[in-house]
Each structure stands twice: as C-alpha cells, then as structure tokens.
Write a protein that binds this DNA or RNA. Structure first.
Length: 455
RNA sequence: GGCGACGUGGCCGAAUGGUUCAGGCAACGGCCUGCAAAGCCGUGUAUCCGGGUUCGAUUCCCGGCGUCGCCUCCA
C-alpha cells in the first residue's frame, strides 16, 4: 500500500481508496496559451510515474486531468496577435499532447475542458450565492473566504497571516471585495471578450472554479487524490477546496504536490522570472527518457535543476541500461524465467514509502550490476531472473529500455562485414567499419559472440 | 513580517541515534578485449557552523549562517 505525503495533514499517510482496488486522481492540467516548459514536464512525469506504479501494483487508476482553455492569458494573447482565441487553445493543446507523447506520458483517462463546463460552473456559483457564501459585484462574483472555516488549510496559514503577507501588492478587484482574500468565481467580460451568459452578467469563469466542478462531476465527492505542482497549493488548490467546503461537499481525501524545477542559481523556473526552458527543446535535443531518468533519481518533493551536466549523466546511465537490456535479451527469452521476487518486494517497499524513486533507482542499478556479474559468471538462470526484475521495475516506472530494435539492411551488412573482418584478423578493416557505424550514430559493441548495434 | 523546505564526496542525489553514510555521473587501478566499447572487481574524496541531549548525532533539540519557496500570474 502506497503512503504519500499529504499537504493537508502535513504527514506521510496511506493513500486510502474510496473503492477498494480503484483510485481516483485529479491532476490540474495546463492553461493552453503557450508552449509547455520544464515545470510542466516535471509535473506530468511525476504523476505519470505515480500512475504507472499504481497500475503496475494492480490498482485500477482513473486519472482526470483538465485543459484550461479559457483564461485571461489566452484572451490577452489572442488580442495581441489579433486572432481567434480558440485557434490558440487548440494549437497549444496539440503541442501539449505531442510533448507528453514525446515524454512517454500516458494520456489521462479523462481530459475535460473548462469551456465544456461553463454551464455547470454557473450553476455552482448560483448555489454559492444562494448559500450566502458568494456575492456578485459590478465586475463579477466573489467567494467570501471568511465564511470558510478552515480557509488556509493547504497554505498552512490563517486568513489574517495570509493577507498580512500581501505586502504592497495590488489586490485585484479590491474596491469591490468584502475581504481582500476573496477570489473571483466569475468575471464579467468587457466588450469584445469571450463570454457566456450568466444571471450576474455575461462573462467567464474564474480559474479556481473549473477544477472543482470537473473533479466532482467526473470523480464524485470524496475522490482519492488531488495533485499538481507546489505552486498550485495556494491559491489554486486552496480556493478549489474553499468552494467545495462552502458547497458543503467532501472534496479530495489526499493532496499531493511536486517540487519545482529550478535554474542554475537555484531559483524557481517561472514564467514571471522569464527563466523557463521550453520542454520541446529538451525533447528535441536529448533522449526524452533522460528527463524521466533525472526525475526518478530525485525525490518528487524536492527541487530539481535541469542542466546540461545532469541530463548528460542521465543519458549515460540510460546507455548503460540499454546495453544491459541488449545483453540480457537472450537470458530473458526463456519462458521459464521469473522476475526475482525478493528484488520486486524491495522495490515495492521503497516506492510505497512516499514514492521514493531515488532509492528505487539505487535498487535497480544494484540489480543490474548483480545480473551483469551473474552473466559474466555464466549463471544465466540468475541473470535471467534479475534481468526480468529490472524489466518489471522499469515497467512500473515508465522507463523503456532499448534493445536491438530494427536495424536497416545496409547496417546489418556492415555488421556482418565487420565480424568477417575480425574473424579473418583483418583488424584494420574491422576498425574502419566500426568507426563508420559509430560515425553514423550507432552504439557498437563487438564481442566474441559477434557485434551488436543500437541507436 | 507570517508559513514552510533545504544545506551530505568533483557533480547529482538517497538514507540513518551506533559495525565500512545507497545509487548515478566523473576520476584512478586491475580483469576481460586484437584494440576499443560494454561488463566485472577494487580505490579515493562528504554529512554548513556553534552549543545541548546521549555511552554514542550526520540523524533529535536550541541558536547561528546560507540557499530556496509560498503569502492571490505559475506545473
């Protein structure tokens, strides 16, 4: 049974399932107005690993992750570029899923769009007003946070301290709000802006409303886990929760937040600092698996710096694993081979402890070394079961190892020529052929058993 | 100002009240190899500082110093 740190209780506690064997997860998805950056990549990879691991342990996971396709940023960009806002959201969503596919992140079970839920949001806001928890003003509808008893639970701060920290920052809509921390559920639109009809004036929903409505609609009250980046903890998740509480509904049972991607100076990568790195660049220039590898070797709650050195180290580590997969392919092919049960149990213990992937990776590399040693010693049976365990672990982490794969005919011919030259002790020719393959980007391993190539 | 996280070898990064502080990358030596590569074996280097608790602390407590995050743009 997996235990996870829960932001609401600030403890590591078992991730309870509302229905045995079934886990319902809501993950806050992207606002589609720009290209995905490394931070998005981290969050989706962390939750992809979570999902794959849970699935691997036999749990039926339903992962709902939304697309925020109406928002001030989208409107701003559409106005600036003078084109329909839908064109931007559609394009960005395509790019988003393209990037996710590149990272080998599984598509969520459900991908609700905010714009498909506006009616339900209007209805929810109406209920909040009826209950006296929200109030309309000249520019929108606001939630009265003072009516929510434990407002500040996720931020771990009381309302007074939260507001005290506002500093000299300008409070949005201050002139109309009853309390500075009240937040917009509905924003009445200005001429030319996209809008939907509502009793309080045509407009658009505030950011925090969509996730409440969509999560409760698709997963129902008291769903198991709500997750997202640390920066969503407050205000986004706090405000989602505040709405659910104000409605008198049970919300998420467990809250999970992943740490940030930081830059070389250790500062958070954020749009406002302008130090965001495009995720697509990383995927284009490096083995996309390297980012997953790097994150697996970092605890999900800690910060991670994504740099040339880190990524290079991950690429190298992957090369070792690929090489391992290739050399153990034969030992694994025996249908009588079973994954080493003890290794898998240790793996589960580590993963179940707040998703301790760095420790799990330590075990994985240890197992690889043991299997290699067994293979060197000619003990193919042990090598096979250890290698099978490695493959199982990789499956539980979403790591795909490369084996021989498809080799073009001319490369195969070169490999054959290389082996023939070596057999004839014509090492000059053999070295030239090997150099040519390497120049073409092939990883070449010549052994007594013959040459194998990998890309 | 409030709340919180963190400070481990050349780099990244776990863990732990006590024999030798995981693992990855890099370095060095050896085995293997026609030579490499891959692999194996081995080596070296680390717990921010000062107190306290303790037989014993890197780990727990207190105080520093430093870094970072959140306090209504954000994964």
């Amino acid at each position: 049974m997996l235990s996870l740190y829960d932001t609401a209780t600030q403890t590591v506690r078992p991730l309870a399932m509302r229905e045995p064997g079934k886990l319902s997860i809501y993950l806050c998805g992207p606002t589609v107005y720009g290209p995905p950056h490394l931070g998005h990549g981290r969050a989706t990879l962390v939750y992809d690993v979570l999902r794959r691991y849970l699935t691997w342990t036999g749990i039926d996971v339903r992962l709902v992750s939304n697309i925020t396709d109406i928002d001030d940023k989208i409107i701003d960009r559409a106005a600036r570029e003078n084109r329909p806002w839908q064109e931007i959201t559609h394009r960005c969503e395509d790019v988003w899923f393209q990037a996710m596919a590149g990272l080998n992140v599984q598509r969520p079970t459900d991908v609700p769009h905010a714009t498909d839920y506006v009616d339900q949001m209007v209805s929810m806001i109406g209920q909040l007003i009826e209950k006296g928890r929200a109030y309309p003003t000249a520019d929108g509808v606001y939630l009265s946070v003072e009516t929510v008893d434990d407002y500040g639970l996720l931020a771990n701060q009381n309302l007074h301290d939260l507001v005290a920290g506002g500093g000299d920052r300008e409070v949005f809509g201050a002139e109309n709000k009853r309390h500075p921390a009240d937040f917009a559920l509905w924003k009445i639109s200005k001429p030319g802006e996209p809008s939907w009809p509502a009793p309080w004036g045509a407009g658009r929903p505030g950011w925090h409303s969509e996730c409440v409505v969509m999560s409760l609609d698709l997963l129902g009250e008291g769903f198991d886990l709500h997750c997202g980046g640390m920066d969503l903890k407050f205000p986004h998740h706090e405000n989602e929760r505040a709405q659910a509480v104000a409605l008198g509904k049970r919300f998420a049972n467990h809250w999970m937040h992943n740490g940030f991607v930081v830059d070389a100076e250790g500062e958070k990568m954020s749009k406002s600092l302008g130090n965001v790195a495009n995720l697509l660049d990383l995927i284009e220039h490096y083995d996309a698996r390297a980012y997953r590898m790097l994150l697996l070797q970092t605890h999900y709650r800690g910060p991670v710096r994504v740099g040339q050195d880190n990524i290079d180290a991950s690429v190298k580590a992957l090369a070792g694993l690929d090489s391992f997969a290739a050399r153990t392919a034969l030992a694994m092919s025996d249908p009588a081979v079973f994954a080493d049960a003890e290794v898998l149990e240790r793996f589960r213990n580590r993963m179940d402890d707040d998703l301790d992937t760095p420790n799990a990776m330590g075990l994985l590399f240890d197992t690889v070394r043991q299997a290699n040693a067994a293979l060197d010693a000619g003990d193919t049976a042990s090598a096979g079961s250890l290698a099978a365990a490695v493959h199982e672990m990789c499956m539980g982490l979403g790591l795909v190892l490369k084996t021989e794969g498809d080799v073009p005919a001319e490369v195969a011919a070169t490999v054959a020529a290389l082996d023939a030259a070596r057999a004839a002790k014509d090492f000059a020719t053999a070295d030239a052929l090997r150099a040519r393959l390497q120049a073409d980007g092939w990883q070449v391993e010549t052994t007594k058993q013959g040459t194998s190539v990998r890309r």
